[in-house]
Design a protein around this nucleic acid. Sequence first.
DNA 1: GTTTCCTTCATACTTTGGGGTGATTTTACC
DNA 2: GGTAAAATCACCCCAAAGTATGAAGGAAAC
Lengths: 157, 157
Amino acid sequence: MLTAFFSKNKLFILYGGLLALLLFLLKWLEYRFVVVNHAFEIYIGAIAIIFMALGIWLALKLTKPKVKTVIIEKEVFVNANPDFVFNENECNKLGISKRELEVLQLMSDGLSNGEIAEKLFVSLNTIKSHSSNLFEKLDVKRRTQAVEKAKRLNIIS
Amino acid sequence: MLTAFFSKNKLFILYGGLLALLLFLLKWLEYRFVVVNHAFEIYIGAIAIIFMALGIWLALKLTKPKVKTVIIEKEVFVNANPDFVFNENECNKLGISKRELEVLQLMSDGLSNGEIAEKLFVSLNTIKSHSSNLFEKLDVKRRTQAVEKAKRLNIIS
DNA sequence: GTTTCCTTCATACTTTGGGGTGATTTTACC
DNA sequence: GGTAAAATCACCCCAAAGTATGAAGGAAAC
């Protein structure tokens, strides 16, 4: 990119810039003692103001705004209610079996598939089957989504 | 260090370089066409450039206190928990940063690391870093546990 | 007795998650 | 000006999660 070029020639550009400034300062002094006409100076002033404004505009336009992130949590709801009532109806509607429900509950407790398998005395592959079936029935892609949705539907606590 | 200065004044240096280039171009033209008559134009140009640079410098210098509010929209669910109050105290105690909190919230929404990365416009590796830090701060091993614990502590909804 | 569903398990494969390390750049603060 | 924390990203490696497919035993239903 263009910035890459500039960052690689920082010193050169800096001294070039300083040199330029110095030269212009000299030039400016030179003309300062020659030009007495006031109209001319007004003209110069106008130019200066216009281009300074342009510079400000450019700087504001080309620099990304310093973002101070303020997180506004608006309407954040999730069901974390203490009075949980099992929604058997919803559970049946989705065709979730008893065993799958067990797996789902342990899932929401943060257990890994391996840990669930250990707890239920079955193999890891079995849990994988259950979880895959669960994801399909809940129409989700990941266990985190499954837990989130199941809680929302009051299938688990 | 010197490099710190350069990195902090990239734009200024850039325009300095451009200024230098333009100046040399003008100088070259001056010698080429014997420009005594063009001195006025050169002077005007110089004024314009100098004040534009000044404008840029001013803009960069004087726009420090810039605060931008970023509203993060979140999904609203039917079975909501209206009595969620963000436990800032707990959050600070655990040393969880703003960005980490964002990631944590999206995690609990069931998004994968890749999806979170997309949503926050950062790379996958960044999200991995954030989540790793989160797991350490929350003293958990998996994202599911992180979500569970964070909800329990009222850090997220 | 056949059908259907649940549960169990397997193998093979791909994707995602997570640990570890290190680096750069911003930002903020003293 | 120096320091510290936060945010960003990269690379490697391994573990866990998830997909696809198939299969076998058991219980209940018809």
